[in-house]
Design a protein around this nucleic acid. Structure first.
Lengths: 234, 234
DNA sequence: CGACCGATTGAAGGTCGTCAAACTACGTGG
DNA sequence: CCACGTAGTTTGACGACCTTCAATCGGTCG
């Protein structure tokens, strides 16, 4: 379960100004000239499912941008319980709290194959104070993370199990832009919803029998949005 | 239930540099000269229990500092369910999202008598870009709000009801610096914990019978920290 | 093939939600 | 001063839902 943490396939120094997901990334608003001020290397790498990007308490000198795949932020309780408090996807930044010189607050674990960029803290810190555009982006990220957190509490941790699962599926579908999406393990879904793995399995199995949840290519699924929406109101 | 929102006892223009809780407030790091740059009036006012500071969707041109009392941030679901996603106390800032020109994301309601300062957005915005100290404070607040949100999800929305109530009580006591603290209504506690008012009442009543929760002066209570801590581990 | 991991299913028991009633504290008005 | 109304708390009975424990199944990888 516990991985030694980050040390994986290196993919070479990234060229941010030619980045394919630049419009989503932290540096989306930077002007061309701003990139000349980046001296420190930004490299691309990837993680396999289950590998840790960092652990709670770590003080790595980087933040990370998710290029593809899903990262779960996990928080543990002294008694062994744990919850997934947030899921990061394409364009999100992992390790924002490091910008304040605080140790990481969660374990960050890959939910499937994940591609990332490592951005040295120094790069962000120097750019932040000079370029209002980056600055605005950072605030924006913070804002979004907080709004997400509230949504999770309100929508995904409230009501009976079937309702929560339905909301989670609708959420993932919406985040994928309405397309087929990656269905997490039952254990992970349970940890997001505050219910057991078994309960999650029973509900998803029922949804499949009803035809409201169908598997598509690979680990992807598709849902009957209308049917599941019904479950969220009652 | 629904209050017309903010319009109450005005207490006069506040003098921030002489503020009694300045060390806790948003402007704590500002130098004396910075205060001369504040032209817009900052006024003090208060709310009674149940009154709204603002509602979801509002676009008031202010943020607010809590001088005393407790403010709950409430989020509603289409089906009528709702959760309290955070509680603001002395020194906290309400309406941070307004700094990004976003409408308020919650209903902000006084849990008891609350004293506040209204800070016009303009004041914060102009100071923010010039003074790194205020800037750091803002990031700091954001960070804390996010950490709080995660804690609530992990500790207060996980496990059986008695465990959650125990954790909530310990939380409130810790936030009060170990002193006697204000015990919210059962309904509010339930809305924080994701359980019903009745369940909350049954648990707190049992705690009282056990002597783990005793009422002190007025609406205040005191707890047996050791006993309640036991409940959080099992 | 055999081991392992995750998903599924079932049975049993406990917890919690629902519904309803009684009780307390408090403020209003007769 | 007391009656009454209101709002919040407590309590109980009952049933639904969820957790727990355990077994089985399916697929993947060595």
């Amino acid at each position: 379960m516990k991985q030694p943490a980050i040390d994986t396939a290196w993919r070479g120094v990234a060229r941010c100004d030619a980045c394919a997901i630049r419009h989503l990334a932290l540096f989306s608003d930077l002007a061309h000239e701003d990139f000349h001020r980046i001296h420190l290397p930004i490299d691309e790498f990837s993680l396999e499912r289950g590998q840790a990007l960092y652990h709670r308490g770590d003080t790595v000198a980087s933040v990370f941008t998710v290029r593809s795949g899903l990262i779960k932020l996990v928080q543990h309780l002294p008694n062994g319980d744990f919850r997934i408090v947030r899921v990061l996807r394409q364009g999100d930044v992992a390790g924002l709290e490091r910008l304040n010189d605080r140790p990481a607050e969660h374990d960050a674990i890959a939910m499937d194959r994940v591609e990332l960029c490592r951005i040295p803290l120094g790069v962000v810190q120097t750019l932040r104070d000079d370029t209002p555009r980056l600055h605005r982006q950072l605030i924006e990220r913070w804002q979004r993370a907080l709004a997400d957190a509230d949504t999770w509490l309100t929508e995904l941790s409230t009501g009976p199990a079937r309702t929560r699962v339905a909301r989670l599926l609708l959420h993932f579908e919406a985040a994928a832009g309405g397309a087929d999406f990656f269905l997490p393990t039952r254990e992970d879904m349970g940890a997001m919803l505050g219910i057991t793995t078994e309960s999650t399995s029973k509900v998803t199995a029922e949804f499949k029998r009803q035809g409201w949840l169908q598997s598509a290519e690979g680990p992807f699924v598709r849902i009957d949005r209308a049917a599941l929406s019904q479950l969220t109101v009652r």
